[in-house]
Write a protein that binds this DNA or RNA. Sequence first.
DNA 1: CCTCTATGTTGACAGTGTCAAGATTAAACT
DNA 2: AGTTTAATCTTGACACTGTCAACATAGAGG
Lengths: 204, 204
Amino acid sequence: MASVYHHGNLRQALLGEADRIIETDGIDALSVRKLADNVGVSRTALYHHFRDKNALLSAITEAQFSHWGEQLTEVLDDQAPIEEQIRAFAKQYLCGATERPAHYNLMFGKPIWKSGEPSESLTEISRATFQNYVILIKRWQELGAIEAAIPPLQLAQVSWGMLHGLARLLIDGVYVDHKQIEEMSDAVTRLLLNGQAATPSSEF
Amino acid sequence: MASVYHHGNLRQALLGEADRIIETDGIDALSVRKLADNVGVSRTALYHHFRDKNALLSAITEAQFSHWGEQLTEVLDDQAPIEEQIRAFAKQYLCGATERPAHYNLMFGKPIWKSGEPSESLTEISRATFQNYVILIKRWQELGAIEAAIPPLQLAQVSWGMLHGLARLLIDGVYVDHKQIEEMSDAVTRLLLNGQAATPSSEF
DNA sequence: CCTCTATGTTGACAGTGTCAAGATTAAACT
DNA sequence: AGTTTAATCTTGACACTGTCAACATAGAGG
């Protein structure tokens, strides 16, 4: 009955519980001590598995990046007209971000990227995620659906920035409301399609 | 010689010093105690002028909003072709944000907007700032330079979101670099102008 | 069986924001 | 003028934070 001295698999337990706390109560509610308490372990046990709190967050973020990438590409149906693909992608992005705001902030926020420098593996996986996005953009450009005069990398930066900015405005509650996601996805799509509307096939 | 018990104008002194700390050392370096120390006053003296730390930040942010609005509209030269105006606006936005990153985060970040609800006056001034932007967009639309099929409010949200997102990516150091501001402004402009390039006069 | 190492614990330290209670001064009223 | 009132500032304290150093325990390998 007496709890064992060695937890067995503390690292995973910490990650799991931390993830839970972040999702339910937000990032500010996650303290090392509270986390340890919930797992049933001492305040400093964590430091045998992670260099510091930031390392813990990096690990969580890393896992999140995988989910994120999958979710985004899952929504792409190659059969659908490109306009629909873009709209679905944008909507999925904004919904995903607003449904798990704390996680989103973690992935693209300052705490990890600026303050405590990101781990090697985190840098790697995030770079890959963005790279995939650039490829996606390039494909859409080649299909003639999207402004082709702008170099793919720049267009990727700018359009990603657009989704990122809208996500943050939604999350932080400035100017915009969650109910407007639908319309916003629509506007994003039309802006990218530069005028051409509702015409599925585009052989150009 | 002995310092007076009553400071005289502590509120202003706190605001000034806080602003200075934020600009030089970032928002994380601003602690109530350090601030009081620098001003030469006791830790809790602040609470006679601001409800809590958040109220102090709100006050600073409010002042910042005024500067911001001016700086943005100053750059608009009605004589220049619209393309140039948009480019200048975008560049000014991104430069302004990256030059004073902590202040920018304060203005459009979660701490003020979500956590501690914003003061009445802050809500007001920020609303006005955005409203001005919507008007600007509408004007550009009416001049035929910008996609007119999207309702002005939505286009304002989306384009502002784009600048906001790019600013944050720059500030937080994800994917993009400060040196790319020029190209980014260019890409933003081209995206908004949906294809029409370098043609100054547009009578429709 | 005994040692070594991985893992977990308690104690301590320097921080943080903020409340309560008391000191001091300026302003307002008689 | 003198006295009361209100504004302002100070010290003490509390609960919280992340993290280091030193010590305890247990499982693995010789």
